[in-house]
Design a protein around this nucleic acid. Structure first.
Lengths: 187, 187
DNA sequence: GTCTATAATTTGATAGAC
DNA sequence: GTCTATCAAATTATAGAC
């Protein structure tokens, strides 16, 4: 891989985001509001300051764009959680969903895509399942002990639902109340 | 109100669904798959066997249609739960979301709309909040005791998230595992 | 890599005949 | 209440110049 294409490798981190990344940033913001059918090439292009044909150059189809959106979201989400066997792991998972609510003021991308799962192109659905598998796996390691699968499922599903419900009712505190009880329930 | 327009009153229940109801039925099925931006007047009309202009006659705008969709969904959902102070109320709530998963094979309409809440017309968003308030109120009555608000929030949000996650992973049993633990957590 | 231009289709919505 | 016809705008996507 040449240096020109190696954004993300050791020598090329922290560069200003290139056009492709800015397209993904804009598309993610819109998809986390209105879902897969809630954003368009033209809207994304306008937000970045280019034409829709340029977006198609980087992502030929909407399935390509949305699939990469979900894959990048998953990578960042899992990476942002840190090590599942380090102290305070469960609290970090709660904080990650809490940041979506209070800092981003947005839904979890894959939570929203998951709600539309049967209306998504195949590749996007697969990427969404990848998010849930990765997050459940991380949570199971973070919890440890016995019955980790069902306990991880309760925590992750509960946090997704708490985020969704808190946003619907515009009551951010609801998330904290639910999260506290979920954590105690899976301890 | 004349009898001809009194569908739903004591004397006129159980009539074959009229066109307006069939439009709502088709629209609900589509909205529970793809959300607000995942269905169109033409698709709904085709499913019912009429033209899109006829759908507009019953529901002038998409906001009108989706608002009534959410309101009817809420009425039916709450009515289907029965009395919150009768025995087995919590299990009936769990069964209601379970039926969406296993019988309808669909998302909760207001759960999906809730995930898109910031991208919805005002009236639809208000109706979605009405669903969550009504369901949380019912759950709080069903649970009784102390701390009913937070316990009801944990149960309802948890069941919404369990439905969403089980559908995403195509693992219906996940819902049962999560629901069992949620019920114990809020007992 | 971005642009102009455009194709082909779909969208929400309206006018007016029957 | 339903239809035909239509509109203006938006949609995904492609061709080809620069």
């Amino acid at each position: 891989m040449s240096a020109a294409h190696a954004n993300g490798t050791a020598e090329n981190r922290r560069r200003p985001p290139d056009r492709r990344d800015r397209i993904l940033d804009a598309a993610e913001r819109m998809a986390r509001r209105g879902g897969y059918h809630g954003f368009s090439f033209r809207e994304v292009a306008a937000a970045v300051g280019v034409k829709s044909a340029s977006v198609h150059h980087h992502f030929p189809t909407k399935e390509d764009l949305a699939t990469e959106l979900a894959a990048r979201y998953t990578e960042r989400f899992i990476a942002g959680l840190g090590a599942p066997d380090a102290p305070g792991a469960v609290d970090r998972l709660v904080a990650a969903y809490r940041a979506a609510l209070r800092q981003d003021d947005q839904m979890c991308l894959c939570g929203l895509f998951g709600a539309e799962i049967d209306a998504l192109p195949i590749g996007v659905g697969d990427a969404v399942r990848g998010f849930f598998r990765a997050t459940l796996d991380w949570a199971a390691r973070a919890l440890g002990g016995t019955g980790t699968q069902a306990r991880a499922e309760t925590l992750v599903a509960g946090l997704e639902g708490a985020l969704l419900t808190a946003r619907s009712l515009r009551d951010a505190d609801l998330y904290d109340r639910v999260a506290e009880r979920l954590v105690r329930a899976v301890e």
